[in-house]
Design a protein around this nucleic acid. Structure first.
Length: 526
RNA sequence: GCGAGCGUAGCUCAGUGGUAGAGCUCCACCUUGCCAAGGUGGCUGUCGUGGGUUCAAAUCCCAUCGCUCGCUCCA
């Protein structure tokens, strides 16, 4: 196992074998955009299909959505992206370092000046690195791509390409609830392209300007509703079994941790070893103001340990924002909650309301809001809270490529050594499942039999036909493509129908009938 | 966007002012009874792009695009 892989080595193989090309390369390329070649698009499609199957099709409590990339611009006002996604930056003209204007002011106890066009630095602001006061004016970098809907390019027609897929799930929440026959707790999954005009795309495909996401919004009851229904709220302190089916008494903390475990289990199932993944719990300032907690699942890339997926508990922030901005109610009616509340005596209700109010006040929230919230709960109504597992598809594809890459030194009978490059993909995501070769190509019956078998197997999985060069060379070519098995048709095939199946990782061979081969591969790729 | 480095064949790279090269890959045919590099033949570049200096530019200068690193960012 050779694991001092550089990203350059990987990029070279990716181009040579057709996994990833630079976008628009013919015209000199375009920064931050990448294309997936013949092998790469198979890999990525397999990853997406595996994710969809795992989070939507194999679950009763998840449904899907495929929303548009361009949506009503008001959505990005409500979500905070239109304002919050633009970080004003200043550069120090002396030491050439760059800072976020808001952070710089905060550190120096200064107030950032709001102007008509943006922000300005107050008197006395200086460079945190060298102390110079020779700073540029703050310049805004809005990370959203701007476009225009319709023929006229004016402000009223301006729209944005979505910077994340998730907002559409909130925006369509009422429609999904009305049509999917789901009840809270349940989730909505979506995958698709997102766009961010990154200041500086880096690290191969890792930070791209056009990228693909696989996102889930999993809607849960507020803990107070759980308490009314179940009489208690299961927290992490109760040490719940997270591998069991979800329980009605789970509070948000448990749901959040459950999804972390679900996601880790899935990464393992497609071949990322547990020890290549780390969990990073965001703390303090790193947490967005609306997030209760957020865990990053990180992978050890050649250029450093970097995030694959963030799993945030976002409370009811997003639905609240959209309810506020759209003026449309986004609350759900929960029959079980209504029934539980109806059973309470007036004194019990009052005690519950007092308890919640006290909690909210302790968290610096308004008592009036708390009492309104509880009043709604007693009617069976609330805004669902949400756990958001949000993964980067291209980042995952890159991690899988890095993880698969291996170089092996082999020594032949004569003591000569050579290096075998092999992409050890999990069979479930391997771009090609099976190479099919005639042992030799100048024997017509053998060739015809091999073609017949290839045509038959190709209907089942993505297969690759190769008749050129020595058999060993053909095996090695498939190793670089990450094909887990190769079937070779030889003279014995003509007699008894068996083929040689060669295993990519062990290089071992076994003779199998076609039925045995089909069973084996079907077993391994699911 | 700012600073630094880099850009020659599909890949890895040599070539520092005078007719563009090597290895591997790839393709065709032969050979090949199971782990690459045996034979014969073949394709591939306006040296990232555009402009300038020069009798002459891959080579020197300017601009631009792309890549890498740092600032920054985080799906």
């Amino acid at each position: 196992m050779k694991k001092n892989l550089t990203i350059e080595t990987l990029a070279s193989l990716c181009k040579r074998r057709g996994f990833i090309f630079q976008s628009s390369e013919l015209y000199g390329g375009i920064n931050g955009f990448w294309d997936y070649g013949p092998l790469g698009c198979e890999l990525k499609n397999n990853v997406k299909a595996a994710w969809w199957k795992h989070v939507v099709q194999c679950r009763e409590d998840m449904v899907g959505l495929d929303a548009t990339i361009i949506m009503h611009p008001a959505i990005w006002k409500a979500s905070g992206h239109a304002d919050g996604f633009a970080d004003p930056m200043v550069d120090c003209k002396v030491c050439r370092k760059r800072f976020r204007a808001d952070q710089l002011c905060e550190e120096q106890n200064l107030e950032l000046i709001k102007t008509e066009t943006g922000v300005a630095l107050p008197e006395g602001a200086k460079c945190p690195a060298c102390g110079s006061k020779d700073l540029t004016e703050p310049r805004s970098f809005n990370l959203m791509f701007k476009t225009f809907v319709g023929p006229v390019e004016d402000a009223t027609n301006q729209a944005w390409l979505r910077p994340e897929t998730a907002q559409a799930i909130f925006v369509q929440f009422n429609n999904i609830l009305a049509t999917s026959r789901q009840k809270v707790p349940f989730g909505v999954a979506q995958m698709g392209k997102s766009f961010r005009n990154e200041i500086n795309p880096r690290n191969y495909t890792f930070r791209s300007r056009e990228f693909e996401q696989m996102e889930i919004e999993f809607f849960i009851r507020p803990d107070e509703a759980v308490e009314l229904i179940c009489g208690r709220v299961t927290t992490l302190a109760d040490n719940p079994d997270l591998t069991s089916p979800p329980q009605e008494s789970w509070g948000w903390e448990v749901w959040h941790r459950y999804w972390v475990e679900q996601r880790l289990a899935w990464y393992r199932s497609i071949g990322l070893p547990a020890d290549s993944l780390t969990l990073y719990w965001q703390v303090g300032d790193e947490l967005a103001h609306y997030a209760r907690t957020c865990v990053d699942i990180e992978y050890a890339f050649p250029f450093g340990i970097q995030e694959l997926e963030g799993i945030a508990a976002r409370g009811d922030f997003d639905l609240t924002q959209h309810q506020l901005h759209s003026g449309k109610p986004m609350e759900v009616f929960d029959e079980a909650l209504k029934q539980a509340a109806d059973k309470l005596e007036p004194a019990e209700r009052e005690a519950f309301a007092d308890k919640v109010a006290a909690q909210w006040v302790a968290e610096n929230k308004s008592e009036t809001d708390a009492r309104a919230f509880v009043g709604n709960l007693f009617k069976g109504k609330y805004l669902p809270h949400v756990v958001e597992p949000s993964a980067g598809t291209d980042r995952l594809a890159l991690a899988l490529l890095c993880n698969a890459y291996d170089e092996e030194t082999l020594t032949d009978d004569k003591g000569k050594t050579d290096t075998r490059t092999v992409m050890r993909f999990h069979p479930a995501i391997a771009p090609i499942k099976l190479g099919v070769f005639p042992l030799v190509k100048n024997k017509p019956e053998l060739y015809a039999k091999a073609r017949e078998i290839f045509m038959q197997l190709q209907r089942r999985w993505n297969c690759f036909w190769d008749e050129s060069g020595a058999i060993g060379r053909r095996y090695r070519r498939m190793d670089e493509a990450g094909t887990p098995w190769c079937a070779t048709i030889d003279f014995q095939t003509l007699e008894d129908g068996t083929v040689t199946l060669r295993d990519r990782d062990s290089m071992q061979q076994e003779r199998l009938t076609l039925e045995e081969l089909i069973d084996k591969i079907n077993r391994e790729i699911t």
